[in-house]
Structures are given as structure tokens and as C-alpha cells.
């Protein structure tokens, strides 16, 4: 009975310290004003995307050719596009595309990449060789070119684009995870778990994976921004999200012809992409520093 008590108590203490750790993490994270501001900006953009129908002043796809290419006024805050659609509303709805594709693609890249990286590192030998060569092949084609080629074959759209960007991004996770697993595989506790008779799969998911996770999280937060840039780029080239869905990249592309009539048409969504990516990167950098005690307060 007494023994059980101590175990329960130990658990409680462990839980407490975990909560304390989280509090400490956020305190370190938000100590830098820039990170705090970026996090707030990020939350605002996410809220804007979620509540787009409530926030947007107009329907983003309703055309009114009478009002085409109006400059900003009190009626249309950022003016209208060549079909008379309200640009502000299109930008607000466009945030959805950017965020969904960004998060989904990074999730897919991370899930596939982590799994194969773990396989490669854990089993070594021929499995390692095969996975390594394939991942090297993916990395040898510049990411945007690979995504373009895949888009040409499988077509655009939110889901397709997420999968394509996920596949073209997964090599980073394969390499990272492989390196992590190689170093963790040799530690005593994994050896101990192995001696207890754990199966490979259980060993990998229960014992190895949780200890590799923090650099993966950092990589993910930094990569969402990169992926959003890729999505915008593909849509800009006319290969990503197709009309009439509003995507920031395609709005810039549509608007560049009308720079004389309404410069906000092309420039405003571009500023939004830049802001979103700056926020994401700043928060990502902050998370990296807060997770890594060596880096704390250095950069």
C-alpha cells in the first residue's frame, strides 16, 4: 500500500513538473516582445480565416462588373478587382486557403517523413539505403519545380496541393528523423526496453519517437511559412488553386495586370503573405530558442 502511494505521488509530482515546464516554456517564449506580437498577429489571422463569413464585408465571389477596378473607398476598403469583387473580402477568404494548405502539407510531410526516417534509422542496412536514395532523389529536384511537375499531372486544388507540397517537403523529415533515431537507438534505455522483449514497432513508437519530437516540432513551425510561400507561388503561376477560389498568390497574379488602375489589387495580398510568413517564422524561431536551453537568449 505504502509503495503504491509513493508511485502515485511520484506520478503527481511528475505531472506537476510537466505543467511547470509548460508554464516556463511559454514564459521564455513570450519574453521577447517580437515573438509575443507575432503570436498575437498569427492568432488574429487564424481567427479571421475561421470567421471569414462574419468578418468579410462582401461575398468574395460575387461579381458586379459596374464596380470593376474601383480604387479604395469607404465602400470597398481595398477597392475591387477586374470583376468588381471586393478585394478585402477575397483576401479574408484567401487566408483560409493559405492556412489550410500550409498546415495540412506540413502535417503530411511530417507524418510520412518521420515514419520513413524512423524506419531508415531503426533498421539500417538495405532499408536505410533505399529510403536514403529516394529521399536524396526528392531533394535533388528543387522543391518548387517538383511541386510544379506534380501539379501539372495531378492538378491543383486545396487537397491535391497539400498532398503535393507534403510529398515535396518530406525529405527534410526523413533526414532529420534518421539522424535522431541513430543517436537515440544506442542509448541505454532503448537497449533496456529491447531486452524487456518489446517488439520493433512498439520500441519505435513508444520509446524512440517521443524523444525525437522536439526538433521535429521546431522544423514544422518553421516550415509552415515556407509551404505557404510555395502555395502562393504555385497559385501565382496559375498551377495551384484555380479560379474562382480566392488564394493570395492568384490574387497577386490577377492584379499585376491592373497595377495602374488599382495597385492594392496586387500589392495587398502580397503584403498579407509576407506578414503571415514573418509571424510564423518569428514564432518558430521563438519556439526553437525556448526548447533549446543552449540557444536561450542568444539570437
Amino acid at each position: 500500500m505504502e509503495k503504491e502511494n509513493t508511485v502515485v505521488q511520484e506520478r503527481k509530482e511528475a505531472g506537476y513538473s510537466r505543467r511547470e515546464k509548460a508554464v516556463k516554456f511559454f514564459r521564455v517564449l513570450f519574453k521577447r516582445k517580437l515573438v509575443l506580437i507575432s503570436a498575437v498577429g498569427l492568432v488574429l489571422i487564424v481567427l479571421m480565416a475561421i470567421f471569414a463569413p462574419l468578418v468579410a464585408p462582401y461575398d468574395p465571389n460575387v461579381q458586379s462588373l459596374m464596380d470593376a477596378l474601383k480604387t479604395p473607398s469607404s465602400q470597398y476598403l481595398l477597392g475591387t478587382d477586374n470583376y468588381g469583387r471586393d478585394i478585402l473580402s477575397r483576401i479574408i477568404y484567401g487566408a483560409r486557403v493559405s492556412l489550410i494548405v500550409g498546415v495540412l502539407a506540413v502535417g503530411i510531410a511530417c507524418a510520412i517523413g518521420t515514419f520513413f526516417g524512423m524506419l531508415a534509422g531503426f533498421f539500417g542496412g538495405i532499408v536505410d539505403d533505399v529510403i536514403n536514395r529516394i529521399s536524396e532523389a526528392i531533394r535533388s529536384i528543387p522543391q518548387i519545380v517538383l511541386a510544379m511537375a506534380l501539379c501539372a499531372v495531378f492538378g491543383g486544388g486545396i487537397i491535391n496541393l497539400s498532398i503535393i507540397l507534403g510529398i515535396s517537403n518530406m525529405a527534410v523529415y526523413i533526414r532529420m528523423m534518421r539522424g535522431q533515431v541513430l543517436s537515440i537507438k544506442e542509448t541505454d534505455y532503448v537497449m533496456a526496453a529491447k531486452l524487456q522483449g518489446n517488439k520493433s514497432l512498439r520500441l519505435m513508437f513508444k520509446h524512440v519517437l517521443p524523444n525525437c519530437i522536439s526538433p521535429i516540432i521546431v522544423q514544422m513551425t518553421l516550415q509552415v511559412g515556407q509551404t505557404i510561400l510555395s502555395e502562393a507561388g504555385l497559385s501565382f503561376l496559375g498551377l495551384g488553386i484555380s479560379a474562382p477560389t480566392a488564394s493570395w498568390g492568384s490574387i497577386v497574379s490577377d492584379g499585376r495586370v491592373y497595377l495602374m488602375q488599382n495597385p492594392f489589387f496586387a500589392l495587398a495580398p502580397g503584403v498579407c503573405i509576407a506578414l503571415l510568413v514573418i509571424f510564423l517564422n518569428t514564432v518558430g524561431d521563438g519556439v526553437r530558442d525556448a526548447l533549446d536551453p543552449r540557444m536561450r537568449g542568444r539570437l
Binding site: 511559412g225 510561400l229 502562393a232 507561388g233 501565382f236 498568390g249 497577386v252 497574379s253 492584379g255 499585376r256 497595377l259 495602374m260 495597385p263 496586387a266 500589392l267 502580397g270 503584403v271 503573405i273 509576407a274 510568413v277 514573418i278 517564422n281 518569428t282
Partner: peptide, 22 residues
């Protein structure tokens, strides 16, 4: 440097086009 890393190249191009040409 941090800001410039985040600027999409196509946006930069369109921006310069607007400023310097138009």
C-alpha cells in the same frame, strides 16, 4: 534579413514593377 527572407519573390517583383516602372 528576417523580413527579406519572408518576402515572396513574385510579390517583390510586382512591388518593384509598380514602384520603379509605373
Amino acid at each position: 534579413a528576417n523580413v527579406c527572407c519572408c518576402l515572396p519573390q513574385f510579390f517583390l517583383s510586382v512591388l518593384f514593377l509598380y514602384l520603379f516602372s509605373i
